[in-house]
């Protein structure tokens, strides 16, 4: 009954049918789940999309078995530093990347299987006071590190064994970079969002890391986080989320926005807003806890323990997963290759939904 009361109401009624439950996996280790993701994994000539789950002390790889069943392939046990998040590496096979730390990220490690030694190993890629990290196509990782005096922004090219094979320093903006996104279809273009609510654009290759442009997002929507970027007709479109959406209620409570920037002039205009669904009358206004974007779909865990899904180009909420009987949703991640939505609970239960 409580879960029902906490479920946000969609204008056209509940559209849970847009999400079809495909399978469930449950980590029975009893440790608290901190993240979930997917990775391509090839073994014995068979390449499959596997699920990765992380608790504070370990990371597990799950392979699809019979329809709607998952089997644990292996577990990497990490050291003293807790795992904070999994860093997905698009189009990479047999390599998992994780961020570890206490309150903030202190280390980035790659996890892999060595057939020579038949061991599941991990390797340190980066350490420091890491403010943002993202995995890009072609086995690249980009991160921002704050030191007392300055900020270091660096791109790392990873080898097949998860070690860095090349590094390129990018010119840092004055403000701390809070998120990165590659510009789709433009291998050398990278964007980032900053703590002062700007979008920055870099040119990235092994020779240069020029900062090309800094463009302000606007003060109405604080703490914008970039998820996707693409260039079309001379404009740079950036998909932003607003983790403090609840606090900017007067602006329509946007969880996600698509903003068009003209990189030549630095001017911008909002193209589409995806607002938080209205909460039932008399209940506390819903807040955005964390989210993820894949293609034109956004998903976020709300403060009610529900997961909401939006069509970012139309601006509408298309589905809501109410909190399950066993508890609230804590994680919402899009699986790679359009395989669907992963919704996770703290007890290690993960549901895969087709969208």
């Amino acid at each position: 009954d409580e879960a029902e009361q906490l479920t946000p109401v969609l204008p056209d009624g509940l559209k849970e049918e847009n999400l079809q439950l495909v399978s469930e996996l449950k980590d029975s280790s009893g440790s608290c789940a901190v993240d979930v993701s997917t990775v391509w994994w090839e073994a014995a000539g068979c390449k499959e999309l596997c699920v990765v789950t992380a608790s504070e002390s370990s990371v597990s790889l799950w392979e699809p078995l019979a329809p709607s069943h998952w089997g644990k392939v292996c577990t990497w046990h990490l050291g003293e530093i807790p795992v904070i998040q999994i860093v997905p590496l698009p189009d990479t096979c047999n390599l998992v990347c994780v961020a570890l730390g206490e309150l903030e990220i202190g280390e980035i490690r790659t996890l892999l299987y060595s057939s020579e030694t038949d061991l599941f190993k991990h390797s340190l890629v980066k350490s420091g006071n890491i403010k943002a990290v993202v995995g890009l196509k072609d086995q690249r990782l980009v991160s921002s590190i704050r030191t007392l005096q300055e900020q270091q922004v660096e791109m790392v090219w990873l080898s097949g064994t998860g070690r860095s094979k090349d590094r390129q320093t990018l010119m840092p903006p004055e403000e701390t970079v809070t998120a990165f996104a590659e510009v789709e279809g433009m291998r050398e273009a990278l964007v980032g969002t900053t703590a002062a609510n700007s979008v920055v654009v870099w040119s990235v290759n092994l020779k240069t890391g020029q900062l090309l442009r800094k463009m302000h997002v606007g003060y109405s929507y604080p703490a914008s986080i970039c998820h996707r970027a693409y260039s079309d007709s001379g404009l740079l479109f950036v998909v932003l989320s607003h983790p403090h959406a609840k606090e900017s209620e007067s602006c329509g409570n946007p969880a996600f926005r698509v903003v068009a920037f003209n990189p030549r002039t630095g001017r911008s205009r909002g193209v589409m807003f995806s607002s938080l669904p209205p909460s039932p009358a008399g209940r506390q206004v819903l807040g955005y806890l964390e989210g993820d974007v894949w293609d034109t779909a956004g998903a976020a865990v709300l403060s009610s323990g529900a997961v909401a899904v939006w069509d970012l180009l139309r601006g509408g909420c298309t589905a809501v997963l109410p909190p399950g009987p066993a508890g609230c949703w804590a994680l919402a991640r899009w699986a790679m290759a359009g395989a669907g939505l992963l919704a996770g609970q703290r007890d290690g239960t993960v549901h895969l939904y087709r969208y």
């Binding site: 510009v183 433009m186 050398e188 273009a189 654009v201 040119s203 240069t208 020029q210 900062l211 090309l212 442009r213 260039s231 007709s233 001379g234 404009l235 740079l236 068009a260 920037f261 003209n262 990189p263 030549r264 002039t265 001017r267 911008s268 205009r269 193209v271």
Partner: peptide, 23 residues
Amino acid sequence: CSESDLGPISLNWFEELSTEAPP
């Protein structure tokens, strides 16, 4: 979006900004 709100648009913005930016 049009040029009236966003200013002159260039299809080659990335190449142009890369050439103009200091190395």
